[in-house]
């Protein structure tokens, strides 16, 4: 090996070492603050629950995991499905899916509108979309409550217009959860959609029209496939926090319409069943990962051949 080669190799390894050093603080935070607690959660889920919360450290048990889906009958002690948990898991998946769908349906025209404005005014529209982020989530959720409660804006307006006779019960229903989540997570769908529609080459749209595709066909055959990366990104950004939503179902859904986030909180709080809480947390994480894998796979297939 010549001297020059040696020097080059030394410079390269120094370079790599420097990069590691530079990224060390970030890596440390990720390991300590994310991977560490997850590991603790995993451990807790396999322990015996403590009498007043906490776990009996070192005492192994699968009770936490089995009670995610199963429960012992109070009378004959037989193992049956935990209907309440299943209902909550199903509600979380259903509402998250619907939230993703509604934010996409509402977000797409919005993002398309913004992306087709003149460059000068586009930034103003994007800015307007981000305004809700200025306010705390809890406050926005209470604002939603003011709109949909029995004596709220919506019901009062509908009664005043004579469309309904008595107020609609929206609060403390799945509809309330859905409305709240759609409202709160809509910007998370609009922004990535906007980013990918803005990159769309509108000459392709013209080419579509030129080749006898009507508006619907251009949307389905050209625009949607090309902005699919934005749809995927937006869906991920909406679906994941929806699945773990806590504040919104707490305020709008009430006790009857819990979602996974509330169930976890219940187990760590009043339920005093930390192993179960930990097991549900990990179940939630697994659900998110499965959803992500399915989504990314489908997206990769339908989006093959273009970035």
């Amino acid at each position: 090996m010549s001297g020059a080669q040696k020097a080059a190799r030394a410079a390269e390894s120094r370079d790599i070492r420097n990069r590691w050093l530079l990224s060390a603080p970030a890596l440390l935070i990720v390991i300590v603050a994310a991977v560490g607690p997850l590991f603790v959660m995993l451990l807790y889920s396999f322990m015996v629950k403590g009498d007043y919360g906490d776990v009996k450290f070192g005492q192994f048990s699968l009770d936490g995991w089995s009670s995610v889906l199963f429960q012992r009958d109070i009378f004959d002690d037989t193992l049956g499905l935990a209907d309440a948990h299943l209902a909550i898991i199903w509600r979380s998946i259903k509402l998250s899916f619907l939230t993703t769908l509604f934010t996409a349906i509402l977000g797409f025209p919005t993002a398309y509108f913004i992306a087709t404005r003149p460059a000068k005014t586009r930034e103003i529209w994007v800015f307007l979309v981000t305004i809700p982020f200025w306010t705390n989530l809890l406050i926005r959720t209470f604002a939603m409550q003011q709109v949909i409660r029995n004596e709220g804006l919506l019901n009062n307006a509908l009664v005043w217009l004579g469309i309904i006779d008595s107020p609609l019960q929206i609060m403390y229903t799945d509809t309330a959860n859905l409305l709240g989540m759609t409202y709160v997570y809509l910007p998370l769908m609009v922004l990535p959609l906007y980013a990918s529609i803005e990159k769309l080459d509108f000459r392709l749209v013209e080419a579509g029209y030129d080749l006898y595709a009507n508006r619907l066909q251009v949307l389905r055959r050209i625009v949607l496939p090309l902005v699919s990366p934005g749809i995927v990104a937006g869906s991920i950004l909406v679906f994941i926090p929806s699945l773990g939503a806590y504040v919104i179902p707490r305020v709008l859904g009430g006790g009857k319409n819990m979602m996974l986030g509330n169930l976890i909180e219940l187990q760590f709080g009043a339920g005093r069943n930390w192993p179960l809480g930990a097991a549900i947390s990990i179940t939630l994480m697994a659900l998110v990962m499965i959803a992500l894998l399915i989504y990314v796979r489908n997206a990769a297939r339908s989006g093959a051949g273009h970035a």
């Binding site: 000459r203 392709l204 080419a207 496939p225 051949g305 273009h306």
Partner: peptide, 10 residues
Amino acid sequence: VFQSYALFPH
């Protein structure tokens, strides 16, 4: 026939 061809990339 477009100047940039405008072929559908997908």
